[in-house]
């Protein structure tokens, strides 16, 4: 119990430190949101002075305040649940996050579950048949999918399945991208929900394609090392049924080291969604990250990074707690 409390305190400190670092880091980036917006207004035909005045009226902070004062204001806001206002979207950051988080969680958690399960099953199978065709195929396959950037794979998926094969193609709107068919009204109707899944298929496929090869390789190497353990041969010597050995002796032990990686992957659920969501115009956190960095939307960047930090810290915490449940050897250390 004391250990859990200590872990919670560490988690809180980590989140605090990360907020601070992000706050200062994005403010030393070249360019600032005011210049960006002023430039936009000038391009729309306003004269520079007028444009500058207008922008100052809508930004939620006083850009002339010293940085430390801005920081204290911001921290006070964070502690009271106010993450500031977005400049680009002209809305509170919390509202943007609350809208974006479910989309990302929906998309990436399904992808991750598929990718992980596929990796576990295939990895074990290959470990049993090591040296075979599938084994050699997956060594190459996962290096290739790791080496190709995810957005390239995403674009390829759109081109092949959407544009070429017309499997994900709307005659009026082209390849299927976005969260759902915009002609439908959101709600708990079968039509809407099936549209959500239909639209999510390609992004999920892209995510799975880019990630599951690594799970396969990890599970394979973990299984191979477990297969060499004495307790596997000992279980065979005791005449246990093969199914029992595969699941409770080999699988159960081989999967343990993968939980750390799974926790890391869960932690990166938001940061890992940037490319896929951008390519597929998916309204999740990932797309807000890329848009807000592009537009120097300080408050949204800070908010998104706060979510990422919380996700990473929480998933590590849960992994630690869970791991001690899964592996009795960790428990009393």
């Amino acid at each position: 119990m004391r250990w859990v409390i200590r872990r919670l305190i560490t988690a809180a400190i980590t989140i605090f430190a990360s907020i601070t670092i992000v706050f200062f880091l994005i403010r030393v980036m070249p360019g600032n949101p005011i210049d960006v917006m002023v430039a936009q207004l000038i391009m729309q035909g306003l004269d520079p002075e007028e444009a500058y005045r207008r922008v100052l009226a809508i930004v939620p902070f006083v850009p002339t305040d010293p940085l430390w004062k801005q920081y204290i204001d911001y921290m006070r806001g964070v502690l009271s649940g106010d993450l500031g206002r977005s400049i680009l979207y002209a809305a509170p950051v919390t509202q943007i996050l609350i809208y974006g988080i479910p989309w990302t969680v929906f998309l990436i958690s399904i992808s991750l579950i598929i990718s992980f399960s596929l990796g576990i099953v295939l990895g074990m199978y290959i470990a049993y048949k090591r040296g075979g065709i599938l084994d050699r195929f997956f060594s190459v396959f996962s290096s290739v999918t790791r080496a190709i950037p995810p957005y390239v794979i995403a674009v390829l998926v759109i081109i092949i399945l959407g544009v070429q094969l017309k499997l994900f193609w709307d005659p009026y709107r082209g390849p299927i991208i976005g969260p759902y068919d915009p002609r439908l009204k959101p709600g708990f109707t079968l039509e809407f929900i099936s549209s959500v899944f239909y639209y999510a298929t390609l992004p999920i496929l892209s995510y799975v394609l880019t990630t599951f090869g690594i799970w396969v390789l990890q599970m394979k190497s973990s299984t191979v090392s477990v297969l060499g353990e004495y307790y596997i041969m000992a279980a065979e010597a005791r005449g246990l049924p093969e199914r029992r050995i595969v699941i409770s002796y080999v699988g159960r032990n081989a999967i343990l080291p993968l939980f750390t990686s799974l926790a890391i992957a869960i932690g990166h659920i938001f940061s890992g969604s940037v490319f896929i969501e951008t390519v597929f115009s998916y309204p999740g956190i990932g797309r807000y990250i890329s848009a807000s960095i592009g537009g120097r939307d300080y408050m949204v960047i800070s908010g998104c990074f706060l979510i990422i930090t919380i996700a990473v810290v929480l998933s590590n915490l849960i992994a630690d707690l869970l791991y001690s449940k899964l592996d009795p050897r960790i428990r009393f250390r």
Binding site: Y230, A235, R252, N253, P328
Partner: peptide, 15 residues
């Protein structure tokens, strides 16, 4: 029945 040389390692660590 066989008692393995690695009797120390012939038990499943998670059981």
């Amino acid at each position: 029945a066989l008692i393995f040389q690695g009797a120390f390692n012939s038990l499943n660590p998670v059981m």
